Amino acid sequence: MRTTIGYTAESIGYVVGAQGLVSFASQTFFGTEWGWMHKVVDLPSTAYLGILAVGLALIVGGVKTRKTPQRQKVA
């Protein structure tokens, strides 16, 4: 079960982090809206860095959950 949760959190983290990065870069450097995040929320460009941080936290949490060793049952 840990493996499934780890992969799921990590996968969601990649999507959320990528959308945060793309939204920040598009607003800051090009003055346009890229990705789908701007269709969900209308935030200033610096707030998208927070979304990127949430994505990175999900990735790290997913990897840590996935790599936690399973307990051995003692007979």
Rank of each mutant, 00 (worst) to 15 (best):
T28S: 04
T65L: 13
Y7E: 15
V74Q: 12
P69C: 04
Y14I: 10
G35K: 03
A9I: 09
G17N: 00
A18D: 08
M37A: 09
V60Q: 11
P44K: 11
F24Y: 15
V63M: 09
L52N: 08
K73S: 14
F30S: 15
Q19R: 00
G62R: 00
G31H: 06
A18E: 01
A47T: 08
K67W: 05
T8Y: 08
F29D: 06
E10I: 05
K64Q: 13
Y48D: 00
S11V: 05
T46E: 09
L56P: 04
V22G: 04
G31C: 07
Y14F: 08
F29Q: 13
T4I: 15
G13C: 04
S26P: 10
A9N: 11
S26N: 05
E10M: 10
T3Y: 14
V74P: 08
T4W: 15
V74G: 05
I5H: 15
K73N: 15
Q19H: 03
I5V: 14
I12Q: 01
P69Q: 09
R2G: 15
G6A: 10
M1G: 14
Q70K: 14
F24H: 06
E33L: 00
K39D: 03
G55I: 01
T32I: 03
T68I: 14
R66L: 04
L52K: 05
D42Y: 06
A9V: 11
L52W: 07
F30G: 06
L49D: 01
V54G: 06
I12T: 07
V22R: 02
G35V: 03
V54D: 05
A53L: 07
M37K: 00
V54R: 04
Y7W: 14
T4A: 14
T4M: 12
M1H: 15
G61T: 05
H38G: 02
P44F: 14
G13I: 00
L56F: 09
G13R: 00
K67D: 08
I12L: 10
T3F: 11
V74E: 09
V40W: 13
A9L: 13
V74M: 07
G35Y: 04
A75S: 15
T4C: 12
Y48E: 00
A9G: 13
I5D: 06
W36T: 03
L49H: 00
H38F: 02
E33R: 03
F30C: 05
T68R: 10
Y14D: 07
A53E: 02
G31K: 09
R66G: 12
F24G: 01
G31D: 12
Q70W: 15
V15M: 13
A18Y: 07
V60W: 03
G61F: 12
Y14W: 06
T28R: 15
L56T: 04
W34T: 05
T4F: 13
I5M: 12
A9C: 14
A18G: 02
Y7N: 15
